[in-house]
Design a binder for these strands. Structure first.
Length: 304
DNA sequence: GAGGCGTGGCT
DNA sequence: TAGCCAAGCCT
């Protein structure tokens, strides 16, 4: 059928999402055109499980202090842990420093541009490797994070929530990407942004969604999630809370502290000891020759 | 492959 | 209020 009553075919969802991004994207410093891939890598590691608002100020000071991988690799671990501040999961800070050392030593100080080499770096997994290749090097890459999996689950599969990561995730998102390479690169960040700002986990803002007219979940009447509830992580009383308190004391201390000082953080001595041991094992804490505790100095004559 | 691993804002 | 949730990685 032809004629003016027939609307032109709607543009593909991927194209619509790229155009939406041009008008709706947040202005984030690591998205500055021409930004150094190292700066992108640092941002991506900081953003693992951590909100943008908390990352931004830390990222700024971090990049000013350690603008290149070799700078970070040369820094004492204690300073790196302190600079990480309260971003959480501080093992990420140590792994980022280790990744910086690997880049400096094995890659001539240049962040590798291929996914396999990136994934071989400490703390860099499937998501972060592709994010660096795509956002840092402008490569056409499918980039799948929790936002992308949620958008695909709703828009394509008509499900309220994404299940666990699947082998088909990369193909799912690649199928939506625009043909033009430059637009496909923007699409990768645009889908994440859509998931972060509009197609959010709690109450999705469908009225603001550029592809609501073709969303399978919306067209199916918003069927509820039918799988098992994702169990929410406990925090109060866990080792994670205790480790956090121990590290909080050590970050604030300007000299090695006694075991007695650490004992004020948590009453249960068994749990406290277990957590201190795990921090020593992780390399987040070291013990001095006289039995005191501090953040790791990186000195070669340290006693552990 | 399920569970461990921080922290704090939001509803 | 008390979960829920946030650009994952590693074992």
């Amino acid at each position: 059928m032809t004629g003016p009553s027939r609307a032109a075919a709607a543009p593909p969802a991927g194209e619509v999402i790229v155009d939406w991004y041009a008008t709706a994207a947040r202005d984030l410093p690591w998205r500055t055109p021409g930004v150094d891939p190292w700066a992108v890598l640092v941002s991506e590691v900081m953003l693992q499980q951590t909100p943008v608002a908390r990352v931004e100020p830390v990222w700024r000071s971090w990049m000013a202090r350690w603008p290149a991988p070799a700078d970070l690799a040369a820094a004492p671990p204690a300073e790196v842990i302190r600079a990480w501040g309260k971003l959480g999961y501080p093992r990420r800070a140590l792994r980022l420093r280790e990744a910086a050392a690997a880049i400096a030593e094995r890659h001539g100080g240049v962040v590798p541009d291929d996914v396999a080499a990136l994934e071989a770096l400490p703390g860099i997994g499937a998501y972060t490797a592709r994010a660096v290749a795509c956002f840092g090097y402008g490569q056409r890459q499918p980039v799948v994070d929790t936002n992308v999996r949620r958008v695909v689950a709703r828009l394509v599969h008509g499900r309220a929530e994404a299940g666990n990561a699947r082998a088909t995730d990369l193909a799912d998102i690649a199928a939506l990407a625009p043909e033009d390479d430059a637009r496909a690169v923007r699409f990768s960040v645009a889908v994440m942004e859509l998931g972060a700002l509009v197609c959010i986990a709690g109450t999705p803002r469908c009225a603001a969604c550029p592809v609501r007219d073709r969303c399978a979940w919306r067209l199916a009447g918003y069927p509820a999630h039918d799988g098992p509830r994702r169990r929410v992580q406990q925090f109060a009383g866990t080792d994670r809370q205790v480790r956090g308190r121990l590290l909080d004391v050590l970050r604030a201390a300007d000299a090695p502290v006694t075991a007695a000082a650490l004992a004020t953080t948590w009453d249960d001595a068994v749990q406290r000891s277990r957590c201190l041991d795990s921090l020593l094992t992780d390399g987040l804490v070291e013990q001095t020759a006289d039995g005191l505790f501090r953040l790791p100095t990186g000195d070669v004559d340290q006693v552990t």
